[in-house]
Design a protein around this nucleic acid. Structure first.
Lengths: 243, 243
DNA sequence: AGAATAGTGTCTTTGAGACACTATCAC
DNA sequence: GTGATAGTGTCTCAAAGACACTATTCT
């Protein structure tokens, strides 16, 4: 409680977005190309500074989501990921960044012509492998986002956020396989997800076309957590480490 | 990337601490009494503003831990919990608070005479029940901290952070029981924790006194995650919600 | 027909929980 | 001895994974 006599520390608050989606059975993340220094020309997470006195953090994340990615913020999953405040993370000065994790269903290509021009979906593998270098500490933020998503697939209905309003069970399986990077047995997966109460709800008498037998369609159910969980084969990984 | 022309938003960055320990088989949290308005006289989390240009967030948390709680920061578990930035959470103006979760072994009473005077351990039940009102949104932060701790007991060796360097298996069980608020079967618990590789390591040929048969002593092992996990009986609860 | 995907049944193994039982201390 | 806690063995039930099998579509 040393709040009697401080001099306001010159800290800028940014909000950065880790937006994941599934494309071509790959986990991909939305990146923008930086137009100014530092890191001009580098890929970076979409984001920006907190706008004004009366904007909540979550509201700022929603705004950036709309401005930079042209995504209807109301429809997708959005949660706080962590806050990154290493003193030297931005060469311009003291910038602390609150990262948010967003999950979007497979949407149209990121739209040239809008404010989101210069944005593109990139496979996360290219980032974790170091093949695609990022600005600032954004590679770390994305790594934390991946781990968060992997972990939440086990205990929450997060996977449905990657899917359209209605989806088949193998759509859902693709989400788990892509995010976890494993192969799952379709038969066991089928029964397992059906067994979790309120996870997914059948949409009556509907079907959809692929190649083989048509599949039933489902919607996300009212569950907010999964009982029993969908366990990740390899097991849990290391905990996150925000800095 | 709208960083071309901003006016530095007047945001103050605070760091607040949720410090948990086990006392009298209860989960307790360290609170201080506010000496100034707003919320003068109310109980609040220890914390303060970010010091200067070159202080990392984690370093600030360590410093507050030392200043306000007189705890040796090097020895205990410390991790970021979340960031709370609702526009109206502090009547003085825009204050965004990064909360850290610390876990301490049962330590001496919070030390009158030091900077930590006015600090006291309180059972978390008194807070979640609304019986003990807190300043700001600190009740929400604590609730998120409880859920984080409960969840991490399942998958990580966090429980050992509540214990002394060496401990018995029933010490460990008391941690699980207090944090989860459940009763566990000592026999099954005994075998279960021993079965997790690298969770706990026996300390050779040592014992300790209580009432019945002396128990073997253990130390925390090198594991950073628990395989298999120690499942929580009731199952998972709702996810956290930082604002 | 054959390939492909959807969906069902069943077996085996593993782990969680219940609980009887033995071991070693204080009194 | 009694009471208390530590530690072991064993049984039962349920969930996880392997996998054979049936069902329905497309070409």
């Amino acid at each position: 409680m040393s709040d009697e006599n401080w001099s306001p520390p010159p800290v800028l608050l940014a909000v950065d977005l880790v937006i994941f989606t599934l494309r071509h059975s790959q986990l991909q993340v939305l990146l923008v190309e930086r137009g100014i220094d530092p890191y001009r020309g580098r890929a970076a997470l979409p984001g920006g500074f907190l706008n004004n006195d009366s904007e909540d953090l979550l509201a700022a994340a929603h705004r950036e989501l709309d401005e930079e990615a042209d995504l209807d913020a109301a429809r997708l999953h959005l949660e706080q990921l962590g806050t990154y405040g290493a003193a030297d993370r931005d060469p311009r000065g003291r910038v602390v960044s609150v990262a948010y994790l967003a999950i979007a269903p497979h949407l149209p290509e990121p739209t040239a012509g809008t404010d989101a021009a210069g944005a593109a979906w990139r496979p996360v593998d290219a980032i974790t492998s170091g093949e695609l270098p990022l600005a600032f500490d954004h590679d770390v933020i994305i790594a934390d986002g991946i781990e968060r998503a992997r972990s939440k697939l086990e205990h929450t209905p997060l996977a449905t956020a990657f899917c359209e309003p209605t989806f088949t069970i193998s759509d859902l399986q693709q989400v788990y396989e892509a995010v976890w990077g494993v192969d799952l047995d379709p038969r066991n997966f089928y029964r397992k997800v059906q067994k979790v109460p309120d996870f997914i709800r059948p949409v009556d008498a509907e079907r959809r076309v692929t190649k083989g037998r048509p599949a039933r369609l489902f919607t996300a159910g009212p569950a907010t957590s999964l009982h029993p969980p969908i366990p990740r084969p390899g097991g849990t990984a290391e905990p996150e480490g925000q800095r």
